[in-house]
Simulated scan of single mutants.
Amino acid sequence: MSQSPSTEQAASTPAAAPAARPAHPYRAFAMRAGLGVAVVTILLTHYDARPIFRILSRERPAFFVAAVALYLAGQAMCAYRWQLLAAILKVHGRYREYFAYIFVGMFTNLFVPGLLGGDAARSVYLGRRHGRIGEAIASVVADRGVGLLGLFWLAAAAAIFLNFAPIPSSIVTPTIAVGAITLAGFLAAPLVARLIHLMPRPLRRAGGIVAPYLHHPAALIPSIALSMVLQITLAICQYLLAAGLGMTVPLSLFILCVPIANVFASLPLTLNGLGIRESAYLVLFGMAGMRKEDAIALGLLWFAATMVGGLTGAIAFVTTPAPVEVTLSHLG
């Protein structure tokens, strides 16, 4: 859905000025985590935590394990998407590198304060491995961007074609609008690339990082398609969790509601969308007739599944060699 790589970029790019670190990263991390916990606490208090915990206790372990396994398969898909994006910048690493670095970043996200801790780790590992820090940062930024494009476009398409619930226009309209705006921005990318030299200096530097992608947006289409497949995979994961709870809900409802909920959960307000996702589920699934307690329980269960999935990244974190500064001359 989510970490500042600017320091590494400044260290390796002569034209870049030193980037300032956030003054209080741990305070920001604590605030996001605290806000998420506060929202969940309010929901549990308002709707009575006891039936919600009883619902959670019904989850069949086999379905939970299957959901986590499918979630991890999605991360493997993310590694391939990142490899495609890096190749556009002539960073040709082996798939196993990207696979390991994705899981290192996923594990780092659990413990490093800030929005982009995992992304910064990925940039450092890939950039130092190939002596291409700038390109590594650009590939990670692009990976994050195409992930959001796939999310926004799938959510908009689902809101248009799968709105059988029905979801009210107050939610559908902004979702479609975000999809339309991002599509327009994607189509206008070559024009934006030509205007980079006219932008203020900070924006010019940021634009220069991703300029190769802006000049050739069509090259991003396979990665965006993978992002949309990934979002469908995440919807199937949560369908499995619901089946494990004994719910009989059609898969189409998850393909509709999960991407829309993820649009809101992608806002960097709480830790991994905690609280925001549960609130979105409460509204979206509630409109389809799901009990409020079931919707909250499903959101909490998915948060637990992603945390368990993130912890598996400890294997890659321990077994992957620490990045060592490499120069292009050394790579021969």
Rank of each mutant, 00 (worst) to 15 (best):
D119S: 15
A184D: 07
H92S: 04
Y125M: 13
L328G: 12
I167G: 03
T319W: 04
A121S: 13
G127V: 03
S252A: 11
R205P: 03
L226D: 03
F164I: 06
E8F: 10
S169V: 15
F107Q: 09
A121W: 00
G299D: 13
H330V: 04
A165W: 04
Y101E: 05
G207S: 12
A180I: 15
A67E: 03
A66K: 05
A305G: 09
T175K: 09
S169F: 12
A142F: 11
T173A: 13
F264T: 07
H197K: 12
S252N: 12
L267S: 03
R81M: 03
F53V: 15
I137T: 15
G147L: 12
S266Q: 08
L115S: 03
L44W: 05
I255N: 07
G118C: 10
S169M: 11
T7R: 13
A136S: 14
A243S: 14
G114M: 06
A66P: 06
I137L: 15
F29V: 04
R96D: 12
R128L: 13
A10V: 11
A49K: 04
W82L: 01
G332V: 07
V308G: 01
N272V: 14
A15Y: 14
D48H: 07
I160M: 11
A87G: 00
C257M: 07
L151Y: 08
S170Y: 07
